[in-house]
Each structure stands twice: as C-alpha cells, then as structure tokens.
Amino acid sequence: MISYALRRLGAGIVLALLVTMITFFLLSGSLESVARERLGSAATPESIKALMTQLGFDRPAIVQYLDWLGAVLTGDFGTSLFTSQPVAPAVASRLGVTLSLVVTALIITVIVSVALGVWAASRGGVADKVSQALSLVGYIVPGLLIAIVLVAVLAVNLKLLPATGFTHFAQNPAKWAASITIPVIVLVIGGVASMAAQVRGSMIDELRKDYVRTLRTRGIPTRSIVLRHALRNAASPALTVLSLEFIQMLGGALIIENVFALPGYGQYAFNASLQGDIPIIMGITLFGVMLVVAVNLITDVVNGWLNPKARIY
C-alpha cells in the first residue's frame, strides 16, 4: 500500500512537471506582448527590448523554465510582474476561498446524490422518475443561467442573500455561509446531475447481483442489504466520478467566482491571464496540479479501503 501510494505520488510529480512545462512553453510565445502590456502607452520597440532583457525574457525558454523550477524548489514562487506582490501567499489565500466553496459544494453534492441515487435505485417507480427528472434538469440548464436566475430572485428581488462579495469564515461564519450560499447551490446542481445518475446506475447494478439475493435468503434486513452491502460496493465507481467532479468544480468555480465577485483563485487566474502575468499563471498552474494530484491520491486510498481487491498492490 505504501509503495503504491509512493508510486502514485511519483506519477503526480511527473504530471506537475509536464503540465507546468507545457504551460510555460506555450506562454513563452507571448512574452513580447506581456512586456508591451506592462509598459502600457509608453511602449517603444527599444523600451520593450530593454524590459525583456531586464526580466530575462530574451533567454531560451528552457533556461527560463529551469530557472523558475529551481526557484520553486527552494520555495520561491516569484513575484507578480505587475504588482510585485509575492505569488505564493497570494495564490494560497485565494485558493483558500475557492476550496471553502468547492469542498462545501462537494460535501453537499455527495449527500444529496447518495440520498437521491439510493432512493431511486431501491424504491423504483415514482422515486426513480423524480430523481431522474431532477438530475436531468441539472444537465440541461447551463450553470451560468442557474446562477443568474438565483441571483436575480434570491438576492436582488427577495434580498435574502448578498448578490456578490465574500466574508471569510474566520471573520463571521454566518456571513460566510450567506456569501457562498448561491455559488454553492449552483455548483451542487451541476454536480448532483452527474453524481446522482452514477450512484443510481451502480446501485441498480449492485442490487441485481447474486449476492444480494443470497443475503435476502439469510434473513438480513433490506436496509442492511442496501446501505451496508450494495452501497459500499457501488461506492467505488461513484468515487471515481466524484474525483472528476471535484476537478470539474474547480473549473466551474472560475465562472462562478467571476459572476459573484468572490476573491478566489479563479478570478485571480482570470485577471492574471488577461494581463499575461506569467509568475502568477505558473504559480496557479502548479497549485492547481498539486491539488488534483492530492485529490487523486485520496481517491485511491479511499478506494483501497472500500474495495479489498484493490488492496493487493
């Protein structure tokens, strides 16, 4: 198990290297326009050239990348090209905002999806139709539209919740909850659509298996068969979808944060990309990949705990 985890970690590091490298080389094509952007209206061919030399942009891309990598390994993520703010603390604090949003949404998604999926698969009939209709709605309507309608109704018309802005949990938990309610609802609707369908599908598969019949013939209560046996076996495929769902939500948070003006890493990434602030872009990319690697690792460990056959490694 430990050697397996180490191998996965190694694969994760390779992934991080590859993604940052590809990103860097793709970005290296637009260095000149970055320099022009930074100089603003004062840009002349000479001043651009001077700035590029000063920033080291005139060196070969591979040298620049290794330079960046070396600095990262010593803990130095660089500073913003435009505000001179150090990258690491800025990204970390933004990431905190995004994670508080995404993790909350993910937990609610899991609870709702499991409840809906199990309910649909073990009751059938009306329960099944209702749950399928609900998840279809999440699929059909673009999250963007849901977000806008919710803001219009809950925040602007009914004034129940703030339309935009963010309060940190540490400052005021109640206000924090209010500030992320609508964004979380939007993320959850999208997440539940695919998760509930997955849970329903794998629960139906499980409940049709032979061992379920045999458990029934042993006089074991239906609730135990559904929740203790079938759900545990159905959890493994659902978990894979869940980890993809997390990655999807990280992406979804980008749009949501911009709609609701939340100071998360999505908004930060968006602004940095518009400006071409390369150190920030690279920092965000690296943090993003590490997050994904961590999630996949956790998924694998939980999967091993759920599924004895996966433990052989």
Partner: peptide
C-alpha cells in the same frame, strides 16, 4: 489520464495569452 486529471477550464483561462 494526464489530460483527464487537469482542470480544463483553468488551462483554457491560463492559456488565454496563447
């Protein structure tokens, strides 16, 4: 699986300069 594990939307935004 490498492509799959990457947050796609983030990459799209990050690559805006490209």
């Amino acid at each position: 699986s490498l492509i799959m594990t990457f947050p796609g939307l983030l990459l799209l935004i990050v690559l805006m300069p490209v």
